Amino acid sequence: MFFEGANGCIYRVVKLALLLPVATATVERCFSKLKLVKTDLRNRIGPEFLNNAMVCAVEKDFLSEVKDDDVMERFQAMKKRR
């Protein structure tokens, strides 16, 4: 097979070299957003809320397409917890 032996090792190194900048850029972008979300004033928020806030911060483009009325209707349709 083509990818076995020395050729396979070279293929993996080249593949990793091409993938690494994209992967590190995504991680750096997420940490940058985390820095904005978790400020000194909000450093005591719980992990679940922080996770939800991070998803909103990272996926801002997708969430901008969601209509406010749809969100309000969904919350109004939810049952009360008490």
Rank of each mutant, 00 (worst) to 15 (best):
C30Q: 14
L34I: 03
V66M: 04
L18C: 10
F49G: 00
A6K: 15
I45V: 05
E65Y: 09
K35E: 14
Y11E: 10
K80D: 12
G5I: 04
F75R: 06
L18Q: 10
K79C: 05
V37H: 00
K60A: 08
D69I: 12
D69M: 07
K67Q: 14
Q76D: 14
V58I: 15
E65C: 07
A23N: 07
L16Q: 11
V55N: 10
F75A: 08
K33Y: 01
E28C: 13
V37S: 01
L63K: 02
A77P: 00
A25Y: 05
C9R: 11
T26H: 09
I10Q: 08
L36S: 14
M54D: 00
P47G: 07
I10V: 15
D68P: 02
Y11N: 12
Q76P: 01
E28V: 11
F75Q: 07
F62V: 12
E73K: 15
F62I: 11
L36T: 09
G8E: 04
E4N: 12
A6F: 15
K60V: 06
L50C: 03
L63W: 06
A77F: 06
K15G: 05
V66N: 02
D69V: 12
D61V: 07
M1S: 14
E48S: 13
V58M: 03
L20K: 09
F3V: 08
T24C: 06
D70E: 15
T24E: 07
I10N: 07
V13P: 01
M54I: 01
R42K: 13
L36H: 10
R29S: 14
T24Y: 08
M72W: 09
D68T: 13
R82M: 07
R12Q: 08
R12C: 07
L19Y: 05
F31S: 03
L34R: 03
P21I: 02
R42I: 04
R74H: 14
A23D: 05
K33L: 06
K15Q: 12
V27D: 03
K33N: 01
A77Q: 10
E4H: 09
N52L: 11
V27R: 07
P47M: 08
V22M: 08
K38H: 04
R82N: 11
A53E: 02
L20Q: 05
L18D: 04
V37Q: 00
A6R: 13
E4I: 09
G5E: 02
T39Q: 05
K67H: 06
A57R: 00
K60I: 05
A57H: 00
